[in-house]
């Protein structure tokens, strides 16, 4: 069973030999970037560089997937925001939104551009997916991600205003989120056309550290459902923070699997959702994988498996400065310990 078969079988809930070790979020490493002689700021704007860099995590460490893009601004940019890739930064700085589309409550009445599928970097992403697929697609599953409607809305307008309006003018926000969902459906479908095996929907801004479970159910869930239902392949719903109170609602959104981070008590979630549910997670990609010792990496992987994750998967993007020996330790531990289970 190779990595691709293992991951696809997992999504289909068929029997596999061990839990896979993969991600649906960014996982490129500085080791990979340096090996290719690229610069972090450059790989966001070049399909070939993006695909080649994304393939290195599999090629160098045996990580069981290939994922593009690397940043979180693709959809907002296609919608009309201006992004900053920090072209002159020495170290690693992820692109951010420089200029928002909505500047106040009165400009919230926007619609999806008709040519969204060909705007911004969407064509570049499709090309990167094709290249990545051609390169390592026989060996590993190739994934991509889109934001969730609320998280995208938080990029398109001031998050501060969005949060307050979610409370004061929920109907106005609901309308905007529905437009965001329509845009995300278009993007996800383009990625599927390019050949991705699975799509992760990252609704990071709607964590239960920020919004109440009630607001989550009334306001966040309906547009999220719309996006996830439109994905015809496998889908994963990722939400950051303390998600124990909303894991059932996350499942209701209809993804193939849910992804949770280190603040989720997975043993508890497993009890709640049953043995059949696909729960991916849930180690701290910075404090364990980047700044932890190899021993900490190994013991954390064992804990994830013991708690009952369906796949060992990071709580967020893997931070590129991850030491290579920790990447190796992570994958080795999942293979050996996961194989015994």
């Amino acid at each position: 069973m190779n990595s691709r078969e293992r991951v696809l079988k997992l999504f289909k809930k068929e029997a596999i030999d061990r839990v896979p070790c993969f991600s649906g979020m960014g996982n490129i490493t500085e080791t990979g970037i340096n090996k290719l002689g690229y610069r972090f700021a450059g790989i966001h704007l070049d399909a070939k560089q993006m695909a080649e860099t994304a393939a290195t995590t599999y090629k160098l460490f045996g990580y069981e997937c290939g994922v593009v893009p690397v940043d979180l601004c693709v959809e907002a940019e296609a919608m009309g925001c201006i992004i900053n890739v920090y072209p002159h930064a020495e170290g690693i700085l992820y692109p951010t939104i420089k200029e928002k589309l909505i500047h106040g409550e009165d400009d919230m009445d926007i619609s999806v551009p008709k040519d969204l599928a060909t705007r911004g970097r969407i064509p570049l992403l499709k090309e990167a997916i094709r290249l990545l697929k051609a390169d390592i697609g026989d060996n590993v599953a190739v994934g991509s991600y889109v934001l969730g409607p609320f998280t995208l809305a938080g990029q398109i307008m001031e998050l501060n205003d969005l949060l307050k309006l979610s409370f004061k003018k929920a109907d106005k926000v609901a309308k905007l989120l529905d437009v965001m969902a329509d845009a995300l459906v278009i993007v996800a479908k383009e990625y599927e056309k390019a050949g991705v095996d699975y799509i992760t929907v990252r609704e990071m801004g709607a964590t239960s550290d920020v919004l109440s479970p009630r607001v989550f159910k009334n306001l966040i869930l309906p547009p999220l459902q719309k996006v996830i239902r439109a994905i015809s392949g496998f889908s994963v719903l990722h939400i950051c923070g303390k998600t124990n109170d909303i894991v059932t609602a996350m499942m209701e959104a209809g993804p193939t699997a849910i992804s949770v981070e280190q603040k989720n008590d997975v043993a508890e979630s497993r009890k709640k959702l049953g043995s059949d549910a696909l729960i991916f997670g849930n180690f701290d990609p910075y404090n364990v994988l980047v700044s932890g010792t190899e021993d900490l990496v190994r013991s954390t992987m064992r804990k994830c498996i013991d708690d009952g994750v369906s796949a060992v998967w990071p709580g967020c993007d893997i931070w590129p400065t991850v030491p290579p020996q920790n990447m190796t330790a992570m994958i080795d531990e999942v293979k050996t310990y996961g194989g015994k289970k």
Partner: peptide
């Protein structure tokens, strides 16, 4: 106590 969340805090701050 998780009775208030971030939107409420922002409004209280205002």
């Amino acid at each position: 106590a998780q009775e208030y969340f971030v939107p409420e805090i922002l409004m209280c701050a205002d």
